[in-house]
Write a protein that binds this DNA or RNA. Structure first.
Lengths: 125, 125
DNA sequence: CGCACATATGAACAGATGTTCATATATACC
DNA sequence: GGTATATATGAACATCTGTTCATATGTGCG
């Protein structure tokens, strides 16, 4: 029940705005969602996650597969860990990383569907 | 069939690396995926897209709902348009934006599932 | 045509992001 | 304990990103 401070521009469709406002999730949810997607929005992290879809891998393997420094991988793994996208288990000095759950696989599947979709015709200006 | 230039580090699990390498999609796909998710990785764009899930809206409505300048909305709409996430139709001087397809709805649904999931227990160090 | 409105665009700027390099931690083995 | 390996972390830095402000485009109307 937010008192909507009516904008002074006049092209606004009031009921539409009110309806959408009520349906709209809060700042925090929007921020969380954005944070999640942002984490998926980097080529290195995408490759890490996709690699882990095949099987669990150690940091060393990841650097070999993806072709970036171990430091870079490590930094990115931290991002993914913080967002609970990956988990790991230790075996001696080696850490084996794997996907935290199957949300990522489904997100990737959806994403790939959009990306590889036959772009009917650009709707760009 | 990429000839894998074996990394000089020795903790690598060779067959694992080779297997994953073969399964891994190309640079271009990884880049496209990352680009898509990056587009979803901003609070303003998240709110725009979520608003459009309810119904089509003009730019003015969006500024009112989300509470940012029309210029900012416009800039973000361009990003979303470029990635074919939204489309629009003109009616006089007003442009009505709407979601380009239903991939976004499904991506959001998946994303929300992850975000709102009861975080069993942090797996952070 | 000229003006008003709805939206788009470009430049500028502050803040965020990803990598590198150097260094630290943790574990195994001698 | 000391050394080697696997990984993590912090600082530094160049690049990218999102907003704002000023200005441009496009449409309707008188």
């Amino acid at each position: 029940m937010v008192e909507l401070d009516r904008c002074d521009i006049n092209c606004i469709h009031d009921e539409a705005v009110q309806a959408v406002r009520q349906a709209l999730f809060g700042e925090d949810v929007a921020a969380s969602l954005a944070e999640l997607f942002k984490a998926l929005g980097d080529p290195t992290r995408v490759k890490i996650l996709f690699s882990l879809m095949t099987r669990e891998l150690c940091v060393c393997d990841l650097t070999a597969v993806i072709g970036v420094s171990d430091s870079a991988v490590s930094h990115q793994l931290r991002v993914l860990r913080t967002l609970r996208l990956v988990k790991f288990r230790r075996e001696g000095k080696i850490l084996y990383y794997s996907l935290a759950d199957d949300h990522i696989e489904r997100l990737f599947a959806q994403g790939l569907e959009h990306v590889t979709e036959p772009k009917s015709e650009m709707n760009e200006e």
